[in-house]
Design a protein around this nucleic acid. Structure first.
Length: 423
RNA sequence: GUGAGCGUAGCUCAGCUGGUGGCAGCACCGGGUUGUGGCCUCGGAGGUCGUGGGUUCAAGUCCCAUCGCUCACCCCA
């Protein structure tokens, strides 16, 4: 058996790359319209960075990170998400001193050691955006609106769900109330919820068991326990979304898997991805920058899963082709023609054309076939007959019309003229 | 980590109650057209039936193990 890729690691083959480029180009365009700048950060970071930001007790940190010991004995980790590394860079370079509010995005691979399934890989790719330095609720709406617009322009339709998780003032009180509520129902919940009752009580509300859900109808809602500040913040977020005519549903059961979230959280969900419903998700993380050793600045961000976007685009089968893949294919017959064609090909490429030829010297039929397969707009035929008459045949592949043109006396001007003509 | 389903040509798959691997489709190469692509037609090439054991006169087919893939649980983008 030959060597294969690691489990959960996938090759993105040429057939699929067009979709990836479309997604990335669309995202960059929209992010730039909203005033975001790209930042590129390393894939490897000190393990402590993720432990401190994502949370020691989360699944990601407890059992999903690709962590190993570096040659100098230090524990390092392949990033499982993007925010921590961007914040580290933000703090390390004191970016807050350059602009009061920083809008940053980054694109790249993330790594989590999970069991792969549809829409879930061990190496996956995210588009990740952060706004650092402002806690205005209208900003929350702006960030959500940007994510919404991106999906819109890609032609992907999703539902927006939002929630508020409160802040360090009000969340603990709610948690107590909830823990008490669950304790009253001990033994009546599913095994998972019994376990989560202790490990992560907020998450029980997200349980898929209908039996549990029936009981949670009466569960206390975080939204009834928000402090006045959080409650006011959330109200303005909702108003602002409405002002932008972005439809949303408040889901008070929505919980995020990373500890650093507070106040506004949101998910863009679909039911077209099997068990994986979230295409993008994010929220506010006031306090995190300070917790990582930076200034006491608030922040908000979100991430989108590129693989999930690709799956959705493939299902919706939109036409993403953009013109012929090849402008001109040269079919050269015989050694003399090949000798002329080779520098000609290079000249045409210098002149800006997507040009190609067959170097194997196969039959004209075979070369025409290749031209067709390469989706060439034109084919330049250099046969023995043409060579002796110092001409070449230029064939328009879609109309099948051909005409003779004189062979070059000077290479570059000839190539430039031809390039101008067929573009 | 747990569970289920599936591994036959580059891809998609037939292969019945065990009896010689399919003129199969797509893709590839060549001919029909002494020099013209897509359509058509004819031909060609391409396989340790995931791997290792076992049962049997005989295993792609049955049994066991193992590896891989997929989906789901969990979790999440």
């Amino acid at each position: 058996m030959s060597i294969t890729a690691l489990k959960g690691f996938k090759d993105i083959l040429p057939d699929e790359v067009g979709l990836w480029q479309l997604i990335e180009a669309t995202a960059r365009d929209i992010f730039h319209r909203f005033g975001f700048a790209e930042i590129k950060v390393p894939i490897l970071e000190k393990t402590e960075l993720f432990a401190r930001s994502i949370g020691e007790a989360t699944d990601i940190v407890e059992k999903e990170m690709y962590s190993f010991t570096d040659r100098n004995g230090e524990s390092i980790t392949m990033r499982p998400e993007g925010t921590a590394a961007v914040l580290r860079a933000f703090i390390e370079h004191s970016l807050h001193a350059k602009l009061p509010v920083q809008k940053l995005y980054t694109v790249g691979p993330m790594f989590r050691h999970e069991r792969p399934q549809k829409g879930r890989l061990r190496q996956f790719h995210q588009l990740s955006c952060e706004v650092l330095g402002s806690e205005l609720p209208r900003l929350d709406a702006e960030v959500i609106a940007m994510a919404w617009l991106l999906l819109n322009e890609l032609g992907i339709s999703v539902r927006l769900e939002i929630n508020s998780l409160g802040c360090p003032q009000c969340r603990p009180r709610f948690k107590e109330t909830l823990v008490q509520f669950l304790a009253d129902r001990a033994g009546k919940l599913c095994d998972d919820c019994e376990r989560r009752r202790n490990t992560n009580p907020l998450r029980v509300l997200d349980c898929k068991s209908s039996h549990c859900q029936e009981q949670y109808v009466a569960a206390p809602s975080i939204l009834d326990h928000l402090c006045p500040e959080c409650s006011g913040h959330f109200a303005i977020v909702k108003e602002s979304l409405s002002a932008l005519a972005i439809p949303f549903r408040v889901n008070s059961f929505m919980v995020r898997g990373l500890d650093y979230y507070n106040r506004t959280t949101f998910e863009l969900v679909t039911d077209a991805l099997g068990a994986q419903s979230a295409v993008g998700a994010g929220g506010r993380y006031d306090g995190l920058i300070e917790q990582l050793g930076g200034p006491p600045l608030p922040g908000i961000g979100f991430a989108m899963g590129m693989e999930r976007l690709v799956l959705l685009l493939q299902q919706q089968a939109g036409d993403t082709s953009n013109g012929p893949a090849t402008d001109l294919f040269i079919a050269a017959l015989g050694e003399e023609a090949q000798q002329l064609a080779f520098p000609l090909l290079h000249g045409l490429r210098r002149a800006g054309l997507k040009a190609n030829m067959d170097l194997e010297g196969r039959s004209l039929k075979s070369q025409m076939k290749q031209a067709g397969r390469a989706d060439a707009a034109f084919t330049l035929i250099l046969g023995e007959d043409e060579m002796s008459r110092k001409v070449a045949v230029l064939r328009d592949m879609s109309s099948r019309e051909q005409e003779e043109i004189a062979l070059p006396t000077e290479l570059d001007p000839w190539c430039q003229e031809l390039a101008r003509r067929i573009r």
